[in-house]
């Protein structure tokens, strides 16, 4: 008796919330599973045929590799062009979206919300749009990555710009400097290492994305992947996937090493 008085009260559980959440998640899951035709019997029936394809797709057809070199190089070129143009355009977009630096609340509001809307569309949608607008090929891919890069860098960097020490920019203003001078000498130098780091990060994402842009006709290795995939040349598909993975991993390692040194 005395013991129970000493013990702290067991926290009450909100059973309504727990049951409601479980019920909601279960219903959503059942609804989704039915909607997409999730069936284990179908999986079991298809598995023998599918595993034959998996067996066929190994070993990769290494003799095909020389023909991949040019498209792989083109893929990297798309990523570089997209990152550089996007990285330059992201600077004004990020500055205007930083609350402490923006010249007007209206500009800030518009910039922020337009970018939020742009960010909802996946990179491959941009590739399809630009392929329709400027024609199939690497230029469409580079433009798609440009938009994607602006979206990534401006979001991350505007947050770093908001976190800078405002003393220096205010000093520039107090000394009679213009808004641009304030940016150039007061604000941007403080956040420059962040910018370089985010630009490298965007490059990593772009290399990864550029590998699949070709699936919708936006140039690079993805276009080869699409033709080999649609003719079920899976030994070649495996070779392409492996070379893409190696390149992505190597570039990520290099870029991460540089970013760690910057931080």
């Amino acid at each position: 008796m005395n013991d129970s008085a000493m013990r702290p009260l067991r926290p009450a559980r909100n059973w309504a919330l727990i049951l409601g959440t479980l019920l909601g998640v279960t219903m959503m899951t059942v609804w989704s599973a039915r909607g997409i035709g999730f069936s284990l019997t179908e999986l079991a029936c298809n598995l023998p045929g599918g595993s034959r394809l998996l067996v066929e797709s190994w070993p990769p057809e290494f003799s095909y590799f020389p023909r991949l070199l040019a498209p792989l190089l083109e893929t990297l070129q798309i990523a570089v062009v997209g990152t550089v143009i996007g990285g330059i355009l992201a600077v004004p977009v990020a500055v205007l979206a930083a609350r402490n630096l923006t010249p007007g609340v209206l500009v800030w509001f518009l910039d922020r919300n337009v970018m939020n809307v742009l960010r909802t569309l996946p990179d491959l949608f941009w590739a399809m749009l630009f392929a329709a607008a400027v024609g199939f090929g690497p230029v469409a891919g580079a433009l798609a990555l440009t938009v994607f890069t602006i979206a990534v860098i401006s979001k991350l960097w505007s947050e770093s710009l908001e976190a800078i020490d405002m003393g220096v920019p205010e000093a520039v203003r107090a000394a009679g400097g213009s808004w641009l001078a304030m940016l150039q000498f007061g604000a941007i130098p403080q956040a420059l290492p962040h910018y370089v780091s985010y630009a490298l990060y965007a490059f990593e994402l772009n290399v990864r994305a550029s590998m699949i842009l070709g699936l919708v006709g936006a140039g690079g290795i993805g276009m080869v992947l699409e033709t080999q995939r649609s003719t079920f040349e899976y030994p070649r598909v495996t070779l392409i996937v492996l070379s893409v993975l190696v390149i992505v991993l190597v570039i990520e390692q290099i870029s991460e090493a540089i970013r760690r040194r910057l931080a």
Binding site: I36, E42, L43, N46, G49, G50, S57, L225
Partner: peptide
């Protein structure tokens, strides 16, 4: 790309 031939075209 690998799952489509294994489980068939479609959302699954």
């Amino acid at each position: 790309i690998y799952f489509v031939p294994i489980v068939g075209l479609g959302p699954f």
